[in-house]
Structure formats: C-alpha cells, structure tokens
Design a protein around this nucleic acid. Structure first.
Length: 780
DNA sequence: CAGTGAGCGAGCTTCCGCTTGACTT
C-alpha cells in the first residue's frame, strides 16, 4: 500500500522530487506521452467529428502497466506533468488510461524544481484543465491531418516515401528561399580605404574612410589626393554607453551559442545537455523560458558578491519574448550556482562552463563603456576618415561572459585611441585601398535555422534537433562544407609619395557546415507552395496558435476549429491528386550542338539527372555533387556526357574515368579508385597518372588486410579500427578479442551472432535492404 | 558505391511533441 503516487514526465525529475517529498510519496515518471494517435492509419475519425483514435505507444506498454498497478493501491494520485499544453494532455491521458477516480486524483504544477515550489504545489492542487487538453488534441489532430494527407500526395506526384508537415516543410522552404536569394545575388566590387596616422607624440591612429569606392580609377584618384593632403582632426566625440548581459539560456540560444563557441551540432548540444541534466548538474534542457527561480537568483548573487565583489552583482529576472512560448520550465541553468566546474568528458565540461558563465553573467552589472568617434579631414577632399575607439570603464558582466553573433568579423579593431583634440594635425604613415566584394546573405547553419524557426514560432524546444535530422534524412537538405575558390585581390598602398600595388590571394565562397537544399528539396517546396499555399505560409503556425489559445480559453470548441481548417484543406488534397501533373522539376537547358537534340534536367528514379534527346536515342547522366538543376548551365550538363572516358590499357584491361556519386573515379578491372582531390582533373587526367593512382590504392589495400582466410572471411583495418568483412557485410569485433589472433572459427561465431542480432534491432537497415533486393529481383 | 532512368502491382512510406535509451558503422 502506498500513500501518494506522484507522476512526472522525466525520470531525473522524479528522483529529485522524491528527495524533496520524502516518506509517504512514491514519485514515478511517465517518460513523456504514453498514448498517441494510431500509428498506422489516419487515427482521426473524420466522419465522427474528428474523434481521435488513441493507442498506447508500444514503448510505453510496460510503464503504463506499472503505473496502473501503483495507482490502484495509492490513496492519492498526483498528476505532476508540466504546466503547458502537452503536459496537461499527458495528465489527461494518464487519468483516462490508468482509470483514475476524480475523488482521489489531483493535478499539480510547478515551474521550478525547488523544495518550496514542490511543497507549494502540493498544497494548491487543481483539476485537469480540459480546455487546455482540447487545445493539445487540436494541435495533434491538425498535425496528423496535414502530415498524413499531404505526404501521400507527394508519393503520387513526386516520389514515394517523401514527407510533408507543418514544421518540416516550412523549415525546408527557409533553406530553399535563402539559396535562391544567394543565386539571385549580384556581387559588387568596391574598394575599402584605411589609413594609419601618427600624432605629434608618435602615437598611432587607425581610421577608415566612410565611403566605398566603386572603381579602381576613383580609388587611385583618391589616393593621389591623399598624397598632397594634410590631415586634421575635425571632431572628437566621446559618448558613454552601457552593455547589458544576455538572458540565461533557452534550448534555442544554448544551441546557437554552443554552435558558435564550441562548434557543436544542434543534436550534439542536446545529448551533452541531457547528460548534464541526468547527472543533476543543470536544470531541464528543453525549455523556452528565460526565467530563473528566486533561489537561483539569490545563490548567484551570493557567488558574485563573494568572488567578484558586490559592485558586480545586479540580480534580475528576464521576460520571455518568444512567440508561442509555453514556459513550463526554468531557463537552462546550473543546479547549484556555487559549482563553477564539474567532472565529465571534454564536451560536458565545456558545455557546463558555457551554461555556468551565461547564467552568472545574467545576474551581473552592466558593462560601462566609452565610445569615441574621431573624424579626420583632408585639406583637399571632402571625404573624411573615421577612427573609433572603445574603452571599457567598468567590465561588469564582461568579466565572465560575452555572447557571440553569427556575423562577427574579426578585423574590427576598435581599441584604445590616443588622446586627440579638434584641430590636431596628424602625419600620414600609410593609406591602403583593398579590393572587396559584397557578400551574399549567409546560408543557414543548423543553429541559425533553429533561431529563425523560433522567431517564426515554428517547432518546439523538444523538436528543433529532430526536425533538422528529419529533413536531412528525407534528402531535402544537407549539411555541407565547401572549400571555396581563391581569387586575386588587389591592394594599393600609399607610403611617402609612392603608390605600390600588390596582389594577394583570398578565398571566397568557403562554407563550413552550412545547410544546402537538394533538388528534391526545391521541387517539393515549389510543389507544396503551389498547391498548399496556406500551410507553407510562414504565418500558418502563428495563426493556428491563436486559434489554439481560443480553445484553451474555452471560447471555441476544438472540433470546430479543425473542421474549419479541414474541409477546404481536404478539397485541395483531392483536387491536387486529380488535377496536378507529376512533378519531376524538369527544366529545358537548350540543344546539344552535336546532335541538335534537346538537353534537359529532371529528378529521375535515382536522383537528379541530365538527359539528351527523347525516345530511341535518349542518353542520361547523373548530376554531380554540388550541382543543382536550377542553376546548372547547358555547358555543364553537356560535360557530364563526356564520361566514362576511355584512357587506354593497363595489364590488358581497360582504364576509364567515370563520375559517380562520390566524385570522379578510375575504373580498371572492375576495381574503382578515386581521383585525388585538387590534383587530378577528370577531363584531362592521363593514363600514366591513372596507373599511378591504381598502384597507390593497391598498396593501401595491402596494408588494410590483417588476415585473409580461404573461406573469403577477411579481417581488415578500417576507419573505426579492425573489423571482419564477409560476403560484402561487415561485422564488429568484440572488445574482448584481439584482431590479429582471431581464428576462422571464432570469426564465423562472431558473424553468426551479429547476423542474428541485426534482424531484431536495426529496423531501418533491414527495411532498406529488402527494398533494394526487391528492385533487383524485379529487374530480372 | 561506381550505374541506373520501362511498366505492372502489392505493400510500404508519412506528421509533431513529450520522454529515454539502444543503437554504432
């Protein structure tokens, strides 16, 4: 017999709360939602007022059974899921599924896991807010209807297995639109002019001309003018400013800062944060709130006063401004503010330090700065130089933490300026004019996409990372790094009475871990934008949220809202299925100068491809990595048909050059060797070089083999250490075995064990395999 | 992984938000 059963969402939370409540309370976790719409079917009974068809999720069967048993013998059941829409729904599903009785069930909520907050909650129970639950049901049903009615349209009209949804489709659209802005961007050349001056007491001043010079001629004219000019300080203006610390972390801002400062991916940040949370080092990591508990504010204050002094302390609480924020939790902060460092692996230590400093800084005084602008005039020209200086009078929060920004440039040197006064004459040391190019809008990183989504109110803290993974898995977008190309940059330097010109190389267009749309992403975005304009609208979610708020207030019935959406929506689905063409994104590029036939690109069964002609003499070639159907030129498309290129014979077998999914390769005797990046060009590589590459590859392969058995079993040295290769499948070697000492029998044993394991575990891998074997079977 | 791009038809795919593990090539 137990006195009280308390059910929360997270097991880590359960542990903490159990400690606070002590004897008489059993605290359990539901591990999130326990029930959801039917997995297989639509799960919504359209005919009967959108009645949701719920089922207990397979991975929750065991926990539901356990909770049921405990609830039965408990005197009072406390439903303590989060205080937001989803949390309220979880409480309601628990109530329904566990068959709880109203007279001994109590609903409690708290925003922070502190003893006071929990005890207060226990003293102030309420009942389940059915209106809020209905808002959640509407949200759930809406997402299901959109996802499960639009995706099948894509299967029919574009390609099987594709997906569409309220959140993911808009996320892809953001990336597609950005790519198009970049393609449409017209870069402009200009010159930037900087000067180095000297005061009478030999102090140096760096300044920049406020104007951009559009041409080389104008730039050189200006430098000529500088030759004869005298330079005078026209004005000195000093203004005190302050800088405020950023609020403590939410999921989104943590992902952004961890990306900028630590180079973490969005999902990496979340898994490291999860570990910190499970260890009890930080508060909950999926939150949209910047709120801190009073306890946290008080302990931060104590820490700051003790270690840095009272003048550094300025306790504050921040207001959440994010659209659609639900604020069920606190901001992400250290559990104990008096713990500046933790034990853990490198990533955990770094992320904790980031969270610690950010939280502490948020409770610190503003930094006081003094910004100085000095205008330097020329005697013979009305364009002036501007020197800026920034002096920190009081560092305040900057002592521990400074937020980073996406568009940071490192060449901004606004440090200390020497004492200058109006009318001071300055000596010209040197003036340099450097060729520049305007930059296209930046591609999204994972983290900047999350920021954008949050601004639009699309997605939730628990879904940012999974959504980004999904749209990559579907092949709509990919995270890539590109090397960029070197370009000659001209620089003119005026020193004394001479102007010297130098040329230096600078890399342009380099991208690091940026999000690029694929052809499929673009075709699907266009298709959806054409037929489902309202869902693709950036305001769709925001407007839906407004309706959900009305449901939560009790002013509309949830089925009414869904009905108003569904009826016209379903008609669009039907008419699109009936009337729209299959969409392969085909684009005509022109005519082949040799045959005169048309050249086009489109998405084929195996991805984007180029095509010459139609009917009998049709020829195909796949597009290369980095090429987009939207931007490929006729010349680039024609070049794809030059492969495979025959080079000649080696060891009585033909050597040819081809271009595959992973770039250009050499084919010889059914073996494949990649060309060397940056050195070999597939269009011009000679037989001699190709043979050298083949021989290099053979040498590497020889070193790869640890042991080879007659049965075909091989022990190889791979990227992740030694492994067993047999019948084109790879097997992991258990840590207890030494690769060099493995016998053939032992290998077979491992293969058998791994083989049977695979069937039960990796679902995605097995389904993929069956689909490919099917295709092969069909061909024969 | 190194090429492919036909057509038929069965059977499958798919959403967003709550939670953790159990996966490792």
């Amino acid at each position: 017999m137990i006195e009280n059963l308390v059910i929360v969402e997270s097991p880590a939370k359960a542990k903490t709360i159990e400690k606070f409540l002590g004897k008489g309370y059993t605290v359990k976790s539901s591990f999130g939602h326990i029930r959801d719409l039917e997995k297989k079917d639509l799960g919504v009974d359209i005919e009967h007022n959108f009645q949701p068809q719920y089922e207990i999720s397979t991975d929750k069967k065991a926990i539901v059974k356990e909770l049921k048993a405990l609830a039965k013998e408990a005197k009072t059941v406390w439903l303590a899921s989060d205080e937001d829409r989803e949390g309220e729904a979880i409480a309601w599903h628990l109530f329904e599924v566990l068959k709880l009785k109203p007279e001994n069930t109590k609903r409690i909520v708290f925003h922070e896991i502190t003893k006071d907050a929990i005890l207060y909650a226990i003293e102030h129970p309420r009942s389940i807010d059915k209106n809020l639950v209905d808002a959640q049901q509407a949200r759930r049903v809406l997402d299901r209807l959109v996802g499960f009615e639009v995706s099948p349209v894509l299967w029919k009209k574009v390609k099987p297995s594709l997906s569409a949804g309220r959140v993911q489709s808009v996320a892809v659209k953001l990336i597609v639109e950005r790519e198009r802005e970049i393609n449409a961007f017209k870069e402009q050349q200009y010159y930037r002019v900087c000067g180095l001056f000297e005061t009478a007491d030999k102090a140096q001043v760096k300044a920049e001309v406020q104007e951009r010079f559009a041409t080389k001629e104008k730039t050189l004219d200006y430098l000529e003018a500088c030759k004869a000019a005298t330079f005078t300080v026209r004005s000195v203006e000093t203004k005190p400013t302050t800088r405020k610390p950023a609020p403590p972390f939410t999921t989104s801002t943590l992902q952004q800062e961890a990306s900028r400062k630590l180079g973490f991916s969005v999902s990496q940040t979340m898994s490291v944060a999860q570990k910190l949370y499970e260890h009890g080092y930080i508060t909950y990591m999926r939150t949209d709130s910047v709120n801190l508990s009073d306890l946290a504010i008080q302990t931060a204050k104590a820490v700051i006063c003790e270690t840095l002094g009272a003048k550094y302390s300025k306790p504050r609480n921040f207001a959440t401004k994010t659209k659609g924020a639900q604020e069920a939790h606190e901001a992400i902060r250290p559990t104990y503010m008096n713990k500046p460092a933790i034990d853990g692996d490198r990533n955990e230590i770094q992320l904790y330090e980031l969270i610690y400093k950010r939280t502490l800084a948020s409770q610190m005084a503003e930094a006081e700065l003094e910004r100085t602008n000095v205008v330097i005039g020329l005697s013979n020209h009305n364009t002036s130089f501007l020197a800026t200086g920034e002096v920190i009078k009081f560092d305040g929060f900057l002592k521990v933490y400074m937020e980073s920004h996406d568009d940071e440039t490192d060449d901004e040197d606004s440090g200390l300026l020497p004492a200058l006064a109006q009318g001071d004459l300055l000596n010209r040391r040197s003036i340099t004019a450097t060729e520049q190019y305007t930059l296209h809008p930046p591609r999204y990183t994972e983290a900047s996409l999350v920021k954008k989504m949050e601004n639009l109110g699309i997605g939730r803290p628990s879904t940012y990372a999974p959504t980004i993974t999904t749209i990559q898995n579907r092949g709509y977008i990919s995270k890539e790094s590109r090397e960029g190309t070197a370009r000659n940059i001209e620089q003119f330097e005026l020193k004394g009475n001479e102007i010297n010109s130098t040329i230096s190389k600078k890399i342009f267009g380099a991208e690091k871990k940026k999000l690029f749309p694929s052809d499929m992403g673009m075709v699907v975005t266009d298709f959806l934008s054409e037929h489902f304009t309202n869902i693709m609208d950036y305001n769709f979610t925001a407007e839906a949220e407004e309706s959900l708020d009305h449901i939560a207030e009790g002013s509309i019935q949830w089925q009414k809202m869904i009905g108003e959406f569904y009826n016209p929506f379903h008609e669009t689905v039907e008419s699109t299925l009936k009337n729209s063409e299959r969409n392969s994104g085909q684009r005509m590029l022109g005519n082949d100068p040799v045959s005169g036939e048309t050249v086009s690109v489109r998405i084929g069964r195996f991805g984007p491809m180029a095509q010459i002609g139609e009917g009998e003499n049709v020829r195909y070639a796949g597009l290369q990595k980095g090429q987009l159907m939207e931007t490929i030129t006729l010349e680039e498309a024609l070049a794809l048909f030059k492969f495979p290129r025959k080079l000649g014979q080696f060891e009585d077998k033909e050597v040819s050059i081809g271009i595959g999914r992973f770039g250009p390769y050499i084919k010889h005797n059914n073996a494949f060797v990649s060309l060397k990046k940056g050195e070999d060009d597939p269009g011009t590589i000679t037989l001699e070089t190709a043979i050298r590459r083949i021989e290099e590859k053979r040498e590497i392969d020889r070193n790869k083999q640890i042991r080879v058995f007659d049965s075909g079993i091989q022990i190889l040295n791979g990227r992740f250490g030694p492994y067993i290769s047999y019948n084109k499948a790879n097997y992991k070697i258990p840590k207890t075995c030494k690769a060099e000492e493995l016998t053939e029998e032992k290998c077979l044993e491992i293969i058998e064990k791994e083989g049977t394991k695979k069937k039960t575990t990796t679902k995605t891998a097995t389904t993929k395999k069956t689909s490919t074997t099917k295709k092969k079977g069909n061909k024969k």
